[in-house]
Design a protein around this nucleic acid. Structure first.
Lengths: 226, 226
DNA sequence: ATTACTAAGACGCGAGTAG
DNA sequence: TCTACTCGCGTCTTAGTAA
């Protein structure tokens, strides 16, 4: 879809077109978009062809309604801006199970961290992480998650060594027919995204889900009320 | 600003560019936007020239940060989608005072309506409306307000005549140095926008604000938590 | 007033390529 | 590899105009 068509559609929606039909002329639309009347007219024709709007002639213009497909297009755009500005409460990501030795495993092996997990999650993590590799299209979601307030796991010092802090995010894990409720993503650092998220849970997920490397899973992250 | 530049900027933001610098190559950007590497390279140059991003070369690409102006551009876009999808809690509109005989005046002259105003607003409206004419750019805001949950004023029947329902929206009225807290917009119908909003208040606003036709005022509408 | 067709023209795109 | 220049080509735009 051409970008200018999205702009035209957005203008129609701003005039109230997403709720009721609006009376608009191609000249008015043209003026708003900064193009000629002829172009605006063409855009409306193209939007009809795409099934995004419906219209009928009217005195001094035309009556336009935005159709379902048009609303969905706008909503998709809106969802992206919500990711950018961190206004989402729930994020869904798809990833592929892989065997990995992420930093997450390091956390659950230290009792100072483990104590905090039990306190803050109300369950004791199984000693092993369930690692999901996300593809590049999920990066915006990872970014949105990382910039949200997770649960802070404090760092500590021991024998002169510093152990850094981490954040955890409560989530659900799904693979079509099964759902595991008590899960959490553990994320060592605020910055630097990685394409792998590490999931912890009170149970041995690989066994419970009969999962193998390469299987796809959906994680639904609860970001609270930001 | 060209639309494709906004798309490029949005992509950078989705990669986390609104929070920290991101490592991106023109090829990666090109692939995402569905254009050639040359075009993507040109977009980045143009975004720098516009003061929207800042960048420095890096191995295998470049490190890009989105600047304040870039964030503001994205935020403006986001605000428009918020208007479309009715996710705003507060709407600010500017309008010019005019003498008018809107339908609002009709409402405050009927005791059946007046009774409801007193009950639902906790104050008794002055018998007269303060009419502000908004320009066309404010239409999206009026639309957003009308689709929000206002306070319902029930209609009634009397001597065989039907008196329709209306909605009121609590608001503030401002003109630079003065603010009136207890105000409300009265809107006779759900559909059909009008460019004039009618404000009611317990006091005689024209007198209190020493206002004359043509003066500009800002109304801040509280839409509750939708 | 409008909408929208045709034709000519502008402007942006990508191929080729250098650094 | 990467970025980014020049230039020929094509697409989308606008002017003119009919309905």
């Amino acid at each position: 879809m051409k970008l200018i068509l999205l702009s035209a559609l957005k203008y129609l929606a701003l005039q109230g077109g997403s709720k009721h039909s609006v009376h608009i002329s191609s000249i008015k639309l043209a003026k708003h978009l900064g193009v000629s009347q002829q172009s605006a007219s063409r855009y409306l024709i193209e939007l009809v062809e795409l099934g995004y709007i419906e219209r009928r002639p009217a005195y001094g213009g035309q009556i336009i309604s935005i159709l379902k497909a048009g609303i969905e297009t706008l909503r998709k755009e809106f969802a992206e801006y919500n990711l950018i500005f961190g206004t989402l409460k729930r994020i869904e990501m798809k990833g592929m199970l892989e065997t990995g030795l992420g930093e997450g495993g390091y956390y659950i092996s230290k009792k100072e961290y483990m104590k905090q997990f039990v306190e803050k999650l109300n369950w004791r993590p199984f000693e092993g992480t369930f690692n999901l590799r996300l593809n590049d299209e999920q990066i915006p979601k990872i970014e949105a998650m990382k910039s949200a307030r997770g649960i802070l796991i404090e760092g500590f010092e021991k024998r002169g060594r510093t152990f850094g802090k981490a954040w955890i995010f409560k989530c659900l894990l799904e693979n079509g027919n099964q759902t595991v409720k008590d899960c959490a993503i553990i994320s060592p650092k605020r910055t630097h995204y990685r394409r792998v998220v590490e999931v912890i849970s009170p149970v041995f997920l690989r066994e419970k889900l009969k999962a193998e490397d390469g299987d796809m899973f959906t994680i639904k992250v609860d970001l609270g009320d930001v």
